[in-house]
Amino acid sequence: MTEREQSFLEYVQSGGQVEATDWMPDDYRAKLIKFIEMHGNSELMGVLPEREWILRAPTLQRKLALTAKVQDEVGHSQLIYRVVEDLGKPREQCLDDLISGKAKFHNVFHYPTKTWGDVGVIAWLVDAAAIISQKALLKCSYAPYARIMKKICWEESFHILHGRDVVLTLMNGTDAQRELVQEAVDRWWGPLMQFHGNPIAKDEDPMYVWRIKSQGNEEARQQFLDGYVPQIWELGLTVPDADLRKNDDGVWEYTEPDWDELRSVVTGHGPKSQDRLDLRRKARESSAWVRQVVLAEAA
């Protein structure tokens, strides 16, 4: 590492923030692009599991809320890709890398949505897990990313309220409705526990070293458990982990998540990975002519 890079590292590690036009080490820029691009991809791919339920929303209010939520996610991906674009990678290239399988997206978006219970559990618990990671990005050393995270976190907090309301309504409903929620929690628990990644020591995590992230994986998972397990229990739901408990020192103990599953899923081998990429590929191919018309107009 050169002296200039070393002083940059010290700067970000002491809480300093960087703007798009500032000098930055190539390694930092590459890590930023990788991290932020995956976030953009995740917002965009996160649309697909929920969009299947937009047509099936059972009341006008739920339809409006779900459409607005999914629209927010697309809006987030647009904002995030702009940040990546400023760092030197155009949106079209991000989308190409996404559909070719070269770039990754978050594990939870590789799974199927099977019932209306999933709609509640995704908006409540998946978004809760996501907002924990995203709130930690408010302190990201790259200032443009930290700034858009304010808007994103604000919107995500509404999604959680929407999800909780869907879940609460179902839990106060018929036995069959309560079963929908429990069955969804049972299916989503594994992916949720894998969501924040393996418990790598934060000083060994390059994303933390550069202060792109401001907390370690295990810290985020503990925060999720502490915030949501009590709420899950309070609603009369169970968590499918007999070893889950909070110790006297305040630390949650749990069965080791399946890290092999996580690795396999995020490399494109999840139950819905290829279907969803195919859908995005087809949509992109069939609308290529529209983008050409728009580009020709802009030229």
Partner: peptide, 28 residues
């Protein structure tokens, strides 16, 4: 609302989703 997530441009995704929400709001 069927365009949500698969429109030709992200901007149109957002636009058509807004239009869908307005229309459903009017219907309601």
């Amino acid at each position: 609302s069927e365009w949500t997530g698969i429109a030709p441009l992200l901007e149109e995704d957002v636009a058509f989703s807004s239009i869908a929400q307005n229309e459903i709001g009017h219907a309601r």
